[in-house]
């Protein structure tokens, strides 16, 4: 069943959860947005070795559930691994979720949720 137009018509931003260089690259493309004060909500989260999984999970929750203006959520594959249970159980159509590679962690097809779905379909 297709979602109604109201579910996606206001989704105009891309959000990103990634390491510093991935976020910098995407902000250079102009996807970064900070909402008007007093909220001043950012649509990106820079994750480093000190960031705990709860903070990542909270940002994931905020971008996927709370905010209704995010159309695509980009997340580094190695960060998605840290909250894999949350990423794998995410089935909503909007925002669309895409795992991207990072500098230190190249793309691993074994961890790709799309290819895992393909394997499930053919393995049935």
């Amino acid at each position: 069943m297709a979602a109604p137009a109201s579910a996606y018509k206001d989704r105009q931003f891309l959000a990103v959860i990634g390491d510093e260089d991935s976020v910098t690259g995407l902000l250079l493309a102009g996807i970064g947005h900070v909402t008007q004060p007093p909220d001043s909500q950012k649509n990106f989260l820079v994750v480093d070795s000190k960031t705990d999984n709860a903070a990542i999970e909270e940002a994931f929750e905020r971008f996927t559930t709370e905010r209704k203006d995010i159309g695509i959520l980009l997340i580094n594959q190695h960060i998605a691994e840290r909250i894999r249970h949350r990423v794998d159980t995410y089935t909503a159509a909007f925002p669309a979720l895409l795992e991207i590679p990072s500098k230190d962690h190249p793309y691993d097809p074994e961890k790709d949720s799309v290819l895992r779905r393909v394997r499930r379909l053919f393995g049935e």
Binding site: A5, L14, E20, T24, V34, S40, I72, F94
Partner: peptide
């Protein structure tokens, strides 16, 4: 890096979601 990020940045590229005739979502930036 993040020390240089503009704290009031506005998106210069935005996403646009539509639907194709078969019902699948089509994304454009």
């Amino acid at each position: 890096g993040q020390d240089c990020y503009d704290q009031r940045m506005q998106a210069a590229r935005r996403c646009c979601v539509t639907r194709d005739p078969e019902g699948a979502a089509l994304f454009a930036v």
